[in-house]
Design a protein around this nucleic acid. Sequence first.
DNA 1: TGCCCCCTGCAG
DNA 2: CTGCAGGGGGCA
Length: 291
Amino acid sequence: MPELPEVEMIKLSLEKKITGEVIKGVQILNPKSFQGEVSYLLGSKIKKIWRRAKILGIDLIPKSKKAELTLLFHLKMSGQIIFQPKNNKRFIGGHPTLDMNLDMPNKSTRVIFELANGSKLFFNDQRKFGWIKLIQTPELSGQDFIKKLGPEPFDKLFTNKVLKENLLKHKSQPVKAALLDQTILAGVGNIYASEACFNASINPETKIGSLTDLQLTSLYEGILKALSDGIKHGGSSKTHFVDSDGKKGYFLDYAFCYNRAGKDCKRCMIGKIVKIKLGGRGTFYCPNCQK
DNA sequence: TGCCCCCTGCAG
DNA sequence: CTGCAGGGGGCA
Protein backbone atom coordinates (compact mmCIF):
# COMPACT_ATOMS: atom_id res chain seq x y z
CA MET A 1 0.00 0.00 0.00
CA PRO A 2 2.02 2.85 1.24
CA GLU A 3 4.94 4.68 -0.20
CA LEU A 4 6.71 7.59 1.43
CA PRO A 5 3.78 10.06 1.16
CA GLU A 6 1.26 7.61 2.59
CA VAL A 7 3.45 6.66 5.54
CA GLU A 8 4.11 10.34 6.11
CA MET A 9 0.35 10.99 6.26
CA ILE A 10 -0.03 8.24 8.82
CA LYS A 11 2.78 9.69 10.88
CA LEU A 12 1.38 13.22 10.75
CA SER A 13 -2.14 12.11 11.60
CA LEU A 14 -0.94 9.96 14.47
CA GLU A 15 1.74 11.84 16.34
CA LYS A 16 -0.37 14.40 18.15
CA LYS A 17 -2.84 11.78 19.25
CA ILE A 18 -0.56 9.21 20.81
CA THR A 19 2.66 10.94 21.78
CA GLY A 20 2.99 10.77 25.56
CA GLU A 21 0.40 8.00 25.89
CA VAL A 22 1.09 4.72 27.65
CA ILE A 23 0.57 1.28 26.13
CA LYS A 24 -1.66 -0.74 28.39
CA GLY A 25 -2.33 -3.88 26.39
CA VAL A 26 -1.57 -5.61 23.13
CA GLN A 27 -3.65 -8.21 21.32
CA ILE A 28 -2.00 -10.18 18.57
CA LEU A 29 -4.59 -11.71 16.30
CA ASN A 30 -2.09 -12.88 13.69
CA PRO A 31 1.21 -14.03 15.22
CA LYS A 32 3.18 -13.54 12.00
CA SER A 33 2.37 -9.84 12.06
CA PHE A 34 4.31 -9.18 15.26
CA GLN A 35 7.92 -9.98 16.10
CA GLY A 36 9.44 -9.32 19.48
CA GLU A 37 8.71 -9.63 23.16
CA VAL A 38 5.22 -8.19 23.63
CA SER A 39 5.44 -8.00 27.38
CA TYR A 40 8.18 -5.34 27.16
CA LEU A 41 5.61 -3.02 25.63
CA LEU A 42 3.25 -3.02 28.56
CA GLY A 43 3.47 0.19 30.55
CA SER A 44 5.82 1.83 28.07
CA LYS A 45 5.32 5.45 27.10
CA ILE A 46 5.24 6.73 23.54
CA LYS A 47 8.05 9.19 23.14
CA LYS A 48 8.30 9.93 19.47
CA ILE A 49 6.92 8.88 16.10
CA TRP A 50 9.08 9.00 13.03
CA ARG A 51 9.31 7.79 9.45
CA ARG A 52 12.28 6.46 7.51
CA ALA A 53 11.52 5.51 3.91
CA LYS A 54 8.33 3.46 4.13
CA ILE A 55 8.93 2.42 7.72
CA LEU A 56 7.07 3.99 10.61
CA GLY A 57 8.84 3.97 13.97
CA ILE A 58 7.52 4.58 17.46
CA ASP A 59 10.13 5.19 20.14
CA LEU A 60 9.09 4.06 23.61
CA ILE A 61 10.28 4.67 27.12
CA PRO A 62 9.89 1.37 28.96
CA LYS A 63 8.31 1.11 32.36
CA SER A 64 11.43 -0.12 34.12
CA LYS A 65 14.92 1.17 33.49
CA LYS A 66 15.63 -1.03 30.51
CA ALA A 67 16.99 0.28 27.24
CA GLU A 68 14.59 2.31 25.16
CA LEU A 69 12.40 0.45 22.76
CA THR A 70 11.36 1.07 19.19
CA LEU A 71 8.31 -0.34 17.53
CA LEU A 72 8.75 -0.60 13.77
CA PHE A 73 5.93 -0.91 11.27
CA HIS A 74 6.21 -1.90 7.64
CA LEU A 75 2.83 -1.74 5.96
CA LYS A 76 3.89 -3.45 2.73
CA MET A 77 0.97 -3.66 0.29
CA SER A 78 -2.15 -3.50 2.42
CA GLY A 79 -1.24 -2.36 5.92
CA GLN A 80 -3.18 0.30 7.80
CA ILE A 81 -2.75 1.91 11.19
CA ILE A 82 -6.07 3.18 12.51
CA PHE A 83 -6.51 5.25 15.64
CA GLN A 84 -9.70 4.84 17.61
CA PRO A 85 -10.35 7.53 20.21
CA LYS A 86 -11.64 6.74 23.66
CA ASN A 87 -15.28 5.64 23.47
CA ASN A 88 -14.81 5.47 19.71
CA LYS A 89 -15.81 9.11 19.24
CA ARG A 90 -14.89 10.47 15.87
CA PHE A 91 -15.12 13.85 14.26
CA ILE A 92 -14.41 13.21 10.65
CA GLY A 93 -14.89 16.19 8.41
CA GLY A 94 -15.09 16.31 4.64
CA HIS A 95 -16.91 13.52 2.94
CA PRO A 96 -17.65 10.76 5.42
CA THR A 97 -18.90 8.43 2.71
CA LEU A 98 -15.47 8.42 1.15
CA ASP A 99 -13.71 7.33 4.32
CA MET A 100 -13.45 3.72 5.34
CA ASN A 101 -15.81 1.87 7.59
CA LEU A 102 -14.24 2.44 10.96
CA ASP A 103 -15.82 -0.41 12.83
CA MET A 104 -12.82 -2.04 14.47
CA PRO A 105 -11.57 -4.63 14.72
CA ASN A 106 -12.45 -5.88 11.27
CA LYS A 107 -11.57 -8.92 9.21
CA SER A 108 -8.13 -7.52 8.41
CA THR A 109 -7.15 -6.51 11.94
CA ARG A 110 -3.94 -8.29 12.91
CA VAL A 111 -2.75 -6.46 16.03
CA ILE A 112 -4.51 -4.16 18.52
CA PHE A 113 -2.73 -1.77 20.88
CA GLU A 114 -4.70 -0.47 23.85
CA LEU A 115 -3.60 2.80 25.37
CA ALA A 116 -4.05 3.74 29.00
CA ASN A 117 -6.39 6.61 28.16
CA GLY A 118 -8.87 4.23 26.54
CA SER A 119 -7.93 4.85 22.91
CA LYS A 120 -6.75 2.07 20.62
CA LEU A 121 -4.52 1.54 17.63
CA PHE A 122 -5.46 -1.09 15.07
CA PHE A 123 -2.95 -2.64 12.72
CA ASN A 124 -4.93 -3.93 9.77
CA ASP A 125 -3.33 -5.83 6.95
CA GLN A 126 -5.46 -7.71 4.51
CA ARG A 127 -2.63 -9.47 2.72
CA LYS A 128 -0.53 -10.16 5.83
CA PHE A 129 2.69 -9.01 4.16
CA GLY A 130 3.25 -6.24 6.66
CA TRP A 131 4.99 -6.59 9.98
CA ILE A 132 5.53 -4.96 13.32
CA LYS A 133 8.86 -5.45 15.01
CA LEU A 134 9.76 -4.55 18.58
CA ILE A 135 13.46 -3.95 19.11
CA GLN A 136 15.69 -2.16 21.54
CA THR A 137 16.43 1.28 20.14
CA PRO A 138 20.22 0.79 20.08
CA GLU A 139 19.70 -2.19 17.75
CA LEU A 140 17.96 -0.02 15.21
CA SER A 141 20.95 0.99 13.16
CA GLY A 142 22.05 -2.63 12.94
CA GLN A 143 18.82 -3.80 11.34
CA ASP A 144 19.38 -4.94 7.78
CA PHE A 145 16.33 -3.26 6.32
CA ILE A 146 17.46 0.07 7.81
CA LYS A 147 21.13 -0.27 6.96
CA LYS A 148 20.44 -0.93 3.30
CA LEU A 149 18.28 2.13 2.79
CA GLY A 150 19.51 4.86 0.51
CA PRO A 151 19.06 8.57 1.15
CA GLU A 152 15.80 10.04 2.38
CA PRO A 153 14.36 12.14 -0.46
CA PHE A 154 13.55 15.22 1.63
CA ASP A 155 16.81 15.11 3.56
CA LYS A 156 19.23 17.87 2.67
CA LEU A 157 21.86 15.20 2.09
CA PHE A 158 19.82 13.97 -0.86
CA THR A 159 21.18 16.16 -3.60
CA ASN A 160 21.10 15.93 -7.34
CA LYS A 161 24.70 14.79 -7.18
CA VAL A 162 24.00 11.99 -4.72
CA LEU A 163 21.11 10.69 -6.80
CA LYS A 164 23.28 10.74 -9.90
CA GLU A 165 26.11 8.84 -8.21
CA ASN A 166 23.76 6.22 -6.83
CA LEU A 167 21.94 5.75 -10.11
CA LEU A 168 25.12 5.45 -12.14
CA LYS A 169 26.07 2.33 -10.19
CA HIS A 170 23.17 0.67 -12.02
CA LYS A 171 23.69 1.73 -15.62
CA SER A 172 21.95 -1.21 -17.22
CA GLN A 173 18.76 -0.85 -15.20
CA PRO A 174 15.63 0.78 -16.57
CA VAL A 175 15.05 4.10 -14.84
CA LYS A 176 11.79 3.15 -13.22
CA ALA A 177 13.18 -0.09 -11.82
CA ALA A 178 16.06 1.87 -10.30
CA LEU A 179 13.68 4.26 -8.58
CA LEU A 180 12.09 1.28 -6.83
CA ASP A 181 15.47 0.15 -5.52
CA GLN A 182 15.47 1.36 -1.92
CA THR A 183 19.26 1.38 -1.77
CA ILE A 184 19.43 4.08 -4.45
CA LEU A 185 16.93 6.30 -2.73
CA ALA A 186 14.43 5.34 -0.07
CA GLY A 187 10.68 5.73 -0.08
CA VAL A 188 9.64 5.74 -3.73
CA GLY A 189 7.27 2.96 -4.73
CA ASN A 190 5.33 1.94 -7.79
CA ILE A 191 3.00 4.92 -8.07
CA TYR A 192 5.52 7.69 -7.51
CA ALA A 193 8.16 5.97 -9.65
CA SER A 194 5.90 6.21 -12.70
CA GLU A 195 4.98 9.77 -11.79
CA ALA A 196 8.61 10.79 -11.32
CA CYS A 197 9.49 9.50 -14.79
CA PHE A 198 6.56 11.39 -16.21
CA ASN A 199 7.59 14.60 -14.46
CA ALA A 200 11.06 14.22 -15.94
CA SER A 201 9.69 13.37 -19.42
CA ILE A 202 11.73 10.17 -19.38
CA ASN A 203 10.50 6.86 -20.76
CA PRO A 204 10.54 4.49 -17.76
CA GLU A 205 12.29 1.79 -19.79
CA THR A 206 15.30 3.99 -20.56
CA LYS A 207 18.51 2.53 -19.20
CA ILE A 208 20.22 4.64 -16.57
CA GLY A 209 23.43 4.58 -18.56
CA SER A 210 21.86 6.34 -21.52
CA LEU A 211 20.39 9.25 -19.56
CA THR A 212 21.88 12.64 -20.23
CA ASP A 213 23.09 14.82 -17.40
CA LEU A 214 20.13 17.07 -17.96
CA GLN A 215 17.75 14.13 -17.73
CA LEU A 216 19.32 13.01 -14.47
CA THR A 217 18.67 16.45 -13.07
CA SER A 218 15.08 16.41 -14.33
CA LEU A 219 14.66 13.05 -12.68
CA TYR A 220 15.87 14.43 -9.36
CA GLU A 221 13.36 17.25 -9.58
CA GLY A 222 10.67 14.90 -10.85
CA ILE A 223 11.06 12.59 -7.88
CA LEU A 224 10.75 15.42 -5.37
CA LYS A 225 7.76 16.86 -7.19
CA ALA A 226 5.95 13.51 -7.32
CA LEU A 227 6.50 12.86 -3.63
CA SER A 228 5.59 16.35 -2.49
CA ASP A 229 2.47 16.35 -4.68
CA GLY A 230 1.60 13.03 -3.09
CA ILE A 231 1.85 14.53 0.37
CA LYS A 232 0.02 17.68 -0.72
CA HIS A 233 -2.99 15.60 -1.74
CA GLY A 234 -2.90 13.34 1.30
CA GLY A 235 -1.42 10.28 -0.41
CA SER A 236 -2.85 7.76 -2.87
CA SER A 237 -5.86 5.67 -1.97
CA LYS A 238 -6.17 3.16 -4.75
CA THR A 239 -7.52 0.40 -2.57
CA HIS A 240 -6.29 0.35 1.00
CA PHE A 241 -4.63 3.53 2.05
CA VAL A 242 -6.19 5.67 4.74
CA ASP A 243 -4.47 7.76 7.37
CA SER A 244 -4.85 7.02 11.07
CA ASP A 245 -8.25 8.78 11.06
CA GLY A 246 -9.48 6.54 8.27
CA LYS A 247 -9.23 9.34 5.72
CA LYS A 248 -8.28 8.66 2.15
CA GLY A 249 -5.80 10.62 0.07
CA TYR A 250 -6.57 12.09 -3.34
CA PHE A 251 -3.26 12.18 -5.17
CA LEU A 252 -4.52 9.79 -7.84
CA ASP A 253 -7.04 12.42 -8.95
CA TYR A 254 -4.04 14.57 -9.82
CA ALA A 255 -1.66 11.87 -11.07
CA PHE A 256 -0.37 12.32 -14.61
CA CYS A 257 0.04 8.71 -15.59
CA TYR A 258 -0.49 6.18 -12.80
CA ASN A 259 -3.69 4.22 -13.33
CA ARG A 260 -4.57 6.34 -16.39
CA ALA A 261 -4.09 3.79 -19.18
CA GLY A 262 -5.95 4.81 -22.31
CA LYS A 263 -6.55 8.36 -21.11
CA ASP A 264 -5.23 11.51 -22.73
CA CYS A 265 -1.89 12.79 -21.53
CA LYS A 266 -2.50 15.84 -19.36
CA ARG A 267 0.74 17.45 -20.56
CA CYS A 268 1.06 17.02 -24.32
CA MET A 269 -2.66 16.44 -24.89
CA ILE A 270 -1.72 14.29 -27.87
CA GLY A 271 -0.44 11.04 -26.42
CA LYS A 272 -2.51 8.45 -24.64
CA ILE A 273 -1.15 6.92 -21.46
CA VAL A 274 -0.08 3.30 -21.89
CA LYS A 275 0.45 0.57 -19.36
CA ILE A 276 3.36 -1.82 -19.64
CA LYS A 277 4.95 -4.35 -17.34
CA LEU A 278 8.41 -3.47 -16.12
CA GLY A 279 10.21 -5.67 -13.64
CA GLY A 280 6.89 -7.37 -12.98
CA ARG A 281 5.18 -4.15 -11.95
CA GLY A 282 2.52 -2.18 -13.75
CA THR A 283 4.09 0.94 -15.26
CA PHE A 284 2.38 3.90 -16.89
CA TYR A 285 3.73 6.55 -19.22
CA CYS A 286 2.99 8.77 -22.19
CA PRO A 287 4.78 7.45 -25.29
CA ASN A 288 4.51 10.86 -26.90
CA CYS A 289 6.19 13.04 -24.33
CA GLN A 290 8.36 10.61 -22.39
CA LYS A 291 11.40 9.79 -24.48
C1' DT B 1 19.01 -9.38 -13.28
C1' DG B 2 14.65 -11.91 -13.26
C1' DC B 3 11.40 -14.94 -11.27
C1' DC B 4 8.77 -16.82 -7.28
C1' DC B 5 6.96 -16.24 -2.95
C1' DC B 6 4.64 -14.41 1.16
C1' DC B 7 -1.42 -13.56 1.36
C1' DT B 8 -6.31 -11.93 0.51
C1' DG B 9 -9.80 -10.04 -2.21
C1' DC B 10 -11.53 -7.54 -6.10
C1' DA B 11 -12.37 -6.47 -11.11
C1' DG B 12 -12.80 -8.21 -15.54
C1' DC C 1 -12.23 -18.34 -13.48
C1' DT C 2 -7.63 -15.63 -14.16
C1' DG C 3 -4.94 -11.78 -13.31
C1' DC C 4 -3.76 -8.15 -10.74
C1' DA C 5 -2.69 -5.07 -6.50
C1' DG C 6 1.16 1.49 -2.99
C1' DG C 7 6.49 -4.19 -1.14
C1' DG C 8 10.43 -6.60 -0.83
C1' DG C 9 13.20 -10.91 0.48
C1' DG C 10 15.34 -15.00 -1.39
C1' DC C 11 16.67 -17.77 -4.85
C1' DA C 12 19.07 -19.33 -9.34
